[in-house]
Design a binder for these strands. Structure first.
Ligand SMILES: Nc1ncnc2c1ncn2[C@@H]1O[C@H](COP(=O)(O)OP(=O)(O)OP(=O)(O)O)[C@@H](O)[C@H]1O
Length: 680
DNA sequence: ACTCGGTTATTTTTT
DNA sequence: ATAACCGAGT
């Protein structure tokens, strides 16, 4: 096969060694852009074509669903097979197992998946019931602690009981689990924990999956957490056919329990391991790699890795220190325009003396104080930023930042400069209010007693059912008190009507498809009329709902109940990167975390300031700082050809302007590796 | 139960 | 600066 498929997609000697390794444990530990993912993909092809493994006996775990999708496409291109290996994120594989084995953990087959909003809504209720003040101890804090426990495979009983707070956390965790089960729902953590529990308690089930998946591959192994580690370990315990790739310098998910030790101790877990190191980088130019190297040296205890490239020459990465965050955004926009349209006339913001517009007059008389001068300059400049003309291949450009909040100014300036863009994450499509409302209605069709969904929409549109009535209703439902329920419905006919509507849609004919159901929900619940009140905002929201029809369309063929479960599942597991549009010509704005595994011709890394990168909340612990260093390393190594590092000297935060100090990470870069862009 | 005005927290990073 | 939240008045 190497003569055919491996040469269609080139592999170097070291990669080939990994691809053609005998069965048994293999670890590729190598730096950014060295072709780890490519090697993993080709390994799958080799297993199928050369070793004759059945595709379905292979399990490949990727970091996002999108990555799985791309890998599938590539494999189809090479082996042209209709049958493919099982591929997906740990979470999506978890659901698959759980749908199959749900009875073993007391779940119905059509269990719902709660997202963080649902989680917090449930937790808030529990906190109120325990008389814990949710303003002092936020639900999100408990969500985080419970999530952390799950990632470490800890049950409530495994948690500490030292302080009152410890005891509270334990109690909340216990009640939370009870409530989830009562609602026939699971959270993200459960998707990982429950399969492991099933494996631990049912040898026969474990054996079934061990036999099903004869070969297991994991990409981005450095960011696996404890449950994921145990899950993988149990699966391959018999055959030890495990192939993992990763880079300890790119471990950036410590905050959600990822444990770097998993990859570092791999050889201890599997003594027979064949370790492969890849040293040639195929992505970036040498000037970019040199900078990346200098930065990663700030993180102690990284594996030393050689990384070289044949692309000796290339643009020297550019550094610009902007007076403020607006100027930072203008710099990015003007560079994008320069890349796309070529260098335009210099000094565009020189206004002629004869210009007697208001702007012209202001421009000739800058304010006296430095602070307002900055504002003046930024304001003036905004009026003269040229508009982008050539939109081709804009998807080769990315703007990367530490926090979503930074995207705001950048977005405004992109709009001003007519630069098409997409923001990944932030406000995810499926997190928009109107979308979540409709999804809640849809979830009620599967489980009309799902209290979290019920609470969300029972009064949207307004039906005169406030918190008081809802509490009564909730009690009646929990206690299954038919009498109380009937009484309530008599008192509030709108409650009765609500459930009748849900029931009516639920009992729609088998022949109805998901789109019919969606239409009926919008009509019969009055949501459509409520939304389309003639306001412009209402229409925008309505358009979003139309978009929901598009997604739901792909589940039209099945009977609607099955399609609905699948649809809700896909939506719940969708990551923000999955929503990204890779092909249309738009500049991509996203966080450094989301950029993992991706690559772009041109990368702008913005906000290189103390407090942002490294983030203020990561500055206490050296371990956290090291993770920030790796985050920076990930950002830099996304760039193939051009890299811009940008910081601002002042930045508006919470409405007031603060002085920003250039990031300590910049100091690690020798001046000769950068070209400094002087201010205009 | 709703609506308005004042108060408050918000900015890590994600499945 | 802005959105989410809370309490008082309707
Ligand atoms: N042998 C090769 N010859 C030419 N190009 C290659 C080779 N191997 C990989 N590449 C290219 O190099 C780039 C990086 O590859 P890949 O994404 O597999 O690296 P990676 O090690 O997984 O990177 P990261 O650690 O950043 O996720 C891709 O554009 C890929 O197509």
């Amino acid at each position: 096969m190497t003569k055919n498929s491996a040469e269609q997609i080139g592999l170097n000697q070291a990669q080939l060694e990994a691809v053609k390794a005998p069965l048994g444990p293999v670890l590729i530990l190598a730096g950014a852009g060295s072709g780890k993912t490519r090697a993993l993909t080709m390994r799958i092809v080799y297993l199928i074509k050369k070793l004759g493994l059945k595709p379905h006996s292979i399990l490949a775990v990727t970091f996002t669903n999108k990555a799985a999708g791309e890998m599938k496409t590539r494999i189809i291109g090479l082996i042209g097979k209709s049958e493919l290996p099982t591929m997906g994120t740990f979470h999506s594989i978890g659901v698959r197992i759980l749908r199959q084995e749900c009875a073993l953990v007391g779940l119905d087959r059509d269990f719902l998946i709660y997202d963080s909003d649902d989680q917090e809504s449930l937790l808030k209720d529990i906190l109120l019931r325990l008389r814990i003040d949710p303003t002092k101890f936020k639900p999100s804090l408990f969500a985080h602690l419970i999530d952390r426990a799950k990632n470490n495979l800890e049950e409530p009983d495994d948690l500490p009981t030292q302080t009152t707070f410890d005891l509270n956390v334990k109690k909340v965790y216990e009640m939370y689990q009870t409530e989830l089960r009562k609602n026939n729902a699971v959270d993200f953590g459960d998707l990982l924990v429950l399969p492991v529990r099933i494996f631990q308690e049912h040898d026969d089930v474990l054996l079934k999956y061990q036999n099903l998946w004869q070969y297991v591959l994991v990409d981005e192994y450095q960011d696996t957490n404890h449950v994921q580690y145990i899950f993988t370990k149990m699966l391959v315990a018999n055959h030890q056919n495990i192939f993992v790739v990763g880079d300890d310098a790119q471990a950036i998910y410590g905050f959600r329990g990822a444990n770097l030790q998993n990859i570092l101790d791999f050889e201890k877990d599997y003594p027979e391991t064949k370790i492969i190191r890849l040293e040639q980088n195929y992505r970036s130019t040498q000037p970019i790699l040199s900078i990346a190297q200098k930065v990663i040296e700030l993180s102690p205890r990284q594996h030393k890795k050689t990384l070289w490239t044949e692309n000796e020459k290339g643009m020297i990465p550019m550094f610009y220190s902007a007076p403020d965050e607006l100027a930072e955004a203008y710099f990015v926009a003007s560079k994008i325009i320069e890349i796309q349209d070529g260098k335009s006339n210099e000094l565009q913001y020189e206004i002629e003396d004869t210009d007697d517009t208001i702007l012209g007059r202001i421009m000739r008389h800058p304010p006296a104080t430095p602070a307002s001068w900055l504002a003046w300059r930024a304001g003036a400049r905004s009026k003269i930023l040229p508009k982008l003309k050539n939109r081709q291949r804009l998807n080769n450009i990315a703007i990367l930042y530490r926090t979503h909040a930074q995207s705001r100014v950048l977005e405004e300036v992109m709009i001003e400069a007519s630069i098409p863009y997409q923001i990944v994450g932030g406000l995810k499509f499926y997190e928009r209010k109107e979308i979540k409302d409709i999804l809640s209605y849809l979830r009620l069709l599967i489980n009309p007693n799902d209290l979290v969904s019920l609470k969300r929409v029972i009064n949207v549109p307004p039906r005169g059912i406030g918190p008081k009535s809802f509490d009564l209703l909730k009690e009646a439902l929990i206690e299954q008190d038919e009498k109380e329920l009937a009484k309530l419905m008599d008192l509030k006919p709108s409650v009765k009507h609500f459930f009748e509507t849900v029931n009516l849609i639920q009992n729609l004919d088998e022949s109805a498809d998901l789109l019919d159901i969606l239409r009926q929900v919008l009509k019969l619940t009055g949501y459509e009329a409520f939304l389309r009140d003639g306001s412009e905002e209402g229409e925008t929201r309505w358009e979003n709902i139309q978009e929901l029809f598009n997604v739901a369309g792909s589940f039209r063929k099945m009977n609607w109940k099955e399609g609905l479960t699948k649809f809700l599942e896909e939506v719940a597991l969708m990551t923000s990167v999955d929503e990204m549009d890779l092909h249309s010509p738009k500049v991509t704005l996203m966080t450094l975390h989301q950029a993992k595994g991706l690559e772009f011709e041109t990368v702008f890394l913005v906000g290189l300031e103390e407090g942002i990168l490294p983030h203020a909340r990561s500055m206490m612990d050296p371990k956290d700082i090291a993770e920030e260093v790796r985050l920076t390393y990930v950002g830099i190594t996304r760039a193939k050809q051009q890299l811009f590092l940008v910081c601002a000297q002042t930045r508006k935060q919470f409405g007031s302007r603060n002085i920003s100090i250039p990031s300590r990470f910049l100091k690690a870069i020798p001046e000769e590796l950068l070209q400094i862009h002087e201010d205009f």
